[in-house]
């Protein structure tokens, strides 16, 4: 993708993110106001494709800003088999039935973020 569409991609990311914040707020508030708990909490390890500190900070902040998911910590895995030196997030989630489901959601958010944030839109 060319750099001409960069500002529009950032704007599209912002709009999508506003929608996402509202949807997840409604989910948390609904669970809170109805009696009983229907949350399925858990903590998953997520290998990101972020290269710079700015990208991983933005991704961690976006994960934390959507209520229900929360970044607990980051680390760098130098012994990873596929990608040595990959940046890793530990994410706590309330409404994902299992770790793989949560990782798929995070992968979607990460793809959108990288497509919008990188000027060329590359994702690897």
């Amino acid at each position: 993708m060319s750099w001409i569409s960069w500002p529009f991609r950032l704007l599209a990311l912002a709009l999508w993110f506003v929608k996402e914040i509202v949807v997840s707020n409604v989910a948390v508030v609904w669970d809170n106001l109805t009696p009983g708990q229907n949350s399925t909490p858990g903590l998953a390890r997520f290998v990101t494709r972020c290269r710079t500190d700015a990208e991983i900070t933005l991704l961690a902040s976006m994960i934390t800003l959507t209520p229900g998911t929360l970044t607990v910590g980051t680390t760098i895995d130098d012994d990873d088999d596929e990608r040595p030196g990959a940046k890793i997030l530990f994410v706590h989630a309330m409404y994902s039935p299992d770790a793989d489901h949560l990782r798929e959601e995070l992968l979607d958010m990460e793809s959108r973020m990288l497509r919008a944030f990188r000027r060329r839109g590359d994702q690897s």
Partner: peptide, 20 residues
């Protein structure tokens, strides 16, 4: 806050999966 809560030993309760 979440990071320091984990470092001071707060358990993730009722967790269905925990990679840490």
């Amino acid at each position: 806050i979440a990071r320091s809560a984990y470092l001071t030993g707060a358990k993730v309760q009722r967790s269905l999966y925990n990679d840490l």
